[in-house]
Amino acid sequence: MKRIYVNEKWCLGCHLCEYYCAFANSGQDDMAKALKDVVIHPRIRIEEQDNISFAVNCRHCEEPLCVKGCISGALSVQDGLILIDPDKCVSCYTCVLSCPYGAIMPSEAGAIQKCELCTKNGRGQPACVEGCPNMAIVFEER
């Protein structure tokens, strides 16, 4: 399965991936209108210290602790992709606690949110990968 991989060596810490993620999942068609004066809650986050930075989002683990721990069946694995059904989510945040990467977070809408590789927002390609200026985030089979 194609996954998002991060080349820390080329990450510039520009945070553009976060903004492209927030825009892609905003449901709007104009980035300026979608994000102007908005505090963003992207599903990908830059971790950084000193001159080291890299993006972190859902790894789509082969044995996902989040899915194992989900008490309501909201998280499921479909063709290797870990998806969230917000209607089933009861916001117990077990997945938030169990994800070793910190890649799942509470959503503004009430449930939890996580990277679903832009499969549900009509983009096809992950927006963070398309928007990365230095190929520090890639979407490929390994």
């Binding site: 510039l12 810490g13 520009c14 945070h15 903004y19 300026a32 004066d37």
Partner: peptide, 26 residues
């Protein structure tokens, strides 16, 4: 101003330190 979303990419990418965020006014 209508288009700027204060994402700070300009600030982070400028080695000449031209841009900065006015935190009080975002």
């Amino acid at each position: 101003e209508k288009r700027c979303i204060s994402c700070r990419v300009c600030e982070r990418q400028c080695a000449n330190e031209v841009h900065h965020l006015n935190l009080a006014e975002n």
